[in-house]
């Protein structure tokens, strides 16, 4: 069964001087165990589609279904908290929280706290190939690649099965980018995550299980 389904989704941006149809009748199905790459030119609608899938906004028409339930009928806060984990291009970590605290923050929001949460955070840090000593460090003590891996660890801590990433390698060098893609693939293939990545990175797209191209707000196979 598809974990995420997009059905005839339309989204238009209205500005004072003009109107932009960002998405036009976009449909697609996303299943667990695969890494999807959303590619397209700047302004093609990648980030808009990712925002709809992440529950940051609702489509104008059409539906985004999570495990068969439209997001429009769900509490979007809870949807984001329990089901949709997002990795951002600029990492988006709490600067005043340590790595461990950043990772356990979503867990605590869901009532999973204390030593157990910290132990799980340590496990996740190990899984994303960060040294154990990184747990007590603040984000600005880490390199960009390390910060992005903390972001993945935080996403994994949500154990949502759906991981969305917006240009995750955009701020990383090649080596760190490769390492990140490997982690994402590992998550999709070994941990049965559905990973959807919006990217300009052709190398990342080449390693994806499926490439979807967005052009002028229309979604098609790459």
């Amino acid at each position: 069964m598809a974990i995420l389904e997009v059905k005839n989704v339309n989204y238009t941006y209205h500005t004072r001087y003009h109107t932009v149809e960002a998405l036009k009748e976009v449909s697609g199905t996303f299943i667990r165990g695969k890494l999807y790459a959303l590619v397209g030119k700047s302004g093609s609608g990648k980030s808009t589609l990712l925002s709809l899938m992440a529950g940051l906004m609702l489509p104008e028409s059409g539906e985004v279904l999570f495990e068969g339930t439209p997001t429009s009928r769900m509490d979007l806060d809870k949807y984001r908290l329990y089901h949709a984990a997002v990795i951002y291009q600029s990492f988006r970590l709490f600067p005043l929280l340590t790595v461990s605290e950043n990772i356990t923050y979503p867990m605590e929001l869901r009532g999973f706290r204390g030593e157990k949460a910290r132990a799980l955070a340590a496990e996740l840090v190990e899984k994303v190939n960060l040294p154990a000593g990184a747990l007590d460090r603040f984000p600005d003590m880490l390199s960009g690649g390390e910060q992005q891996r903390v972001g993945i660890a935080r996403a994994m801590s949500m154990n949502s099965g759906l991981l969305l990433a917006d240009e995750p390698t955009g701020n990383l060098d090649t080596e760190n980018g490769d390492r990140l893609v490997s982690i994402l693939l590992d998550l999709a293939h070994n941990d049965d995550y559905c990973v959807i990545v919006a990217t300009h990175d052709l190398e990342l797209a080449a390693r994806a299980d499926k490439v979807l191209r967005i052009s002028d707000g229309m979604l098609g196979d790459g």
């Binding site: 910290r118 600005d140 003590m141």
Partner: peptide, 13 residues
């Protein structure tokens, strides 16, 4: 650069 090590709080709630 700040110090390499911080300290994770035991606080919760």
């Amino acid at each position: 650069p700040r110090a390499v090590h911080g300290r994770t709080s035991r606080l919760s709630g």
